[in-house]
Nucleic acid binder design. Structure first.
Lengths: 263, 263
DNA sequence: CCAAGTTAGTTTATGCCGTAAGGAGTTGCA
DNA sequence: TGCAACTCCTTACGGCATAAACTAACTTGG
């Protein structure tokens, strides 16, 4: 049974995100022992350390020495709490990338920082990108990307596409690495163990691998594996490299569009 | 408490994915009333129609006139079932894109088809990209992308990056549209209703929007909104356009790399 | 100063979920 | 004929979000 979210709910949720609550001097009743900020910070700490799967109202309450139900005084629901976590986390991103070196340098540093942010908070990528949360910090983030890329001189429509494409790429590239960090925490099996066991099973289950997947076999034979730093898990190294190289490709494409449109 | 997944579990799961089970003539016990295929198909149907959130063992069992526990005779766990769903869905993708028109045309048609696939099965994007599922059809999909792009003549390392970047982009672009289809199904609120209510609240909660987010305000003023087909939800139109334009940018970047490396 | 009303937080309960355990009925083979 | 293997069921457990009803702390109007 899906309950239609009423207008009132939406208003309360926006008010919470944008912090439009009056000072509220001297009210009756016991003094609040918690606060929305405290709850959100605690929830973020849990998600960072133990993954989104470990985030429950009970878990947050327990860390604060309260029951799960106590949180409902401050936050209307778990999904609302997750929205607040998301917006809080986004506040970490810087908002003033230097444009004096040209837009390409600025975009690169923006993308790098954003990528690191996602990797640092892997759970953020699990927050539904469905309807955007529409919190203040999400707007700040988008505004910053637009501000930088407007420097290219592209028109409004092109700017939209370019920013969208950049977001897709950064999120996708971060996702690979984020998951390779999340999985060990949540399953207790390291990347190395997992891949080792899995690839052994693969040859067992598909002995004709090389004939069925010739290009993959060629790629593996080409020694494209390059574990230059053995302390970095394989997936993570791969993700980093793809990010750097992919970003260059993307920026080349954007540059072509910019000079093509005569900017 | 996370239980370490043993080797035996992994072997069983790979065997299930790759269908390496002997014919099994005349065994004791009642004839199976269900089959893995039937269960997986039913689960896919539920996920397609009602979203991943509605997919439960009880729901699948009920559709088949069985209890939830009956499924465990065929499938060891829900997460295993989801892996099987994922691989089954991937079987829809075609494996022989025409290369006679050059790699760019082939990549475009591959990307288009893959994008449509994700949009058709929005739940696929929710299946963790953590440790790849490693089913046969995932390999087929990757092999096809590699086969097409090898036509560029890029070396192994570059090929990896390019394919990775392309995947990130297609998934990201599809995600936006997929969510805009998933959300109404799961929440009962259409895109239009939601955006209308939300943007009204936004001006209420941030009356100084134009000063705080000048580039976004400019973009909105530029009339970048172009609802050419009113039957297509806004988010979806935006997603489609970004996909087409973004893909062109990406391919331009790849082309630059190809001619740069003297292929 | 006290009763009324408001609020923070608890306990209890409902209805979901995945799945462990054990039992009932069915079938093929020794 | 009996046994082992098999499918499927019922029951149960511990988890989840959260509704409802309650207690206790606090402010304020009379």
């Amino acid at each position: 049974m899906v309950v239609f979210a009423g207008q009132g709910d939406a208003r309360r949720s926006m008010a919470l995100l944008w912090r439009t609550t009056r000072p509220e001097g001297g009210r009756p009743g016991p003094k609040p022992g918690l606060s929305v900020d405290l709850i959100v910070d605690t929830a973020v700490a849990i998600a960072d350390a133990e993954g989104m799967a470990a985030l429950s109202m009970r878990a947050v309450g327990e860390r604060l020495g309260r029951t799960a139900m106590a949180l409902y005084t401050y936050v209307p629901s778990k999904s609302e709490l997750v929205d607040l976590m998301y917006d809080r986390a986004l506040a970490e991103l810087s908002t003033r990338h230097d444009l004096t070196g040209g837009w390409r340098a600025a975009v690169t540093s923006w993308a790098q920082e954003t990528w690191e942010f996602y990797v640092r908070h892997p759970w953020v990528l699990q927050v539904s990108q469905a309807r955007p949360v529409l919190g203040p910090n999400e707007y700040v983030m988008i505004e910053e990307a637009l501000r930088i890329l407007r420097e290219t001189g592209l028109d409004a429509a092109a700017l939209r596409y370019v920013v969208g494409t950049l977001f897709y790429f950064v999120r996708g590239a971060a996702q690979t690495v984020a998951e390779s960090r999340r999985a060990p925490v949540e399953t207790g099996v390291s990347d190395e163990e997992w891949w080792y066991a899995r690839s052994a099973l693969l040859t067992e289950v598909a002995p004709d691998f090389a004939e069925r997947f010739p290009t993959m076999a060629w790629l593996a034979g080409e020694g494209a594996y390059d574990p230059r730093d053995e302390t970095v898990p394989y997936m993570e190294q791969e993700g980093r490299d793809t990010f750097a190289a992919g970003l260059a490709i993307l920026l080349d494409g954007i540059e072509a569009k910019v000079s093509g449109s005569g900017a």
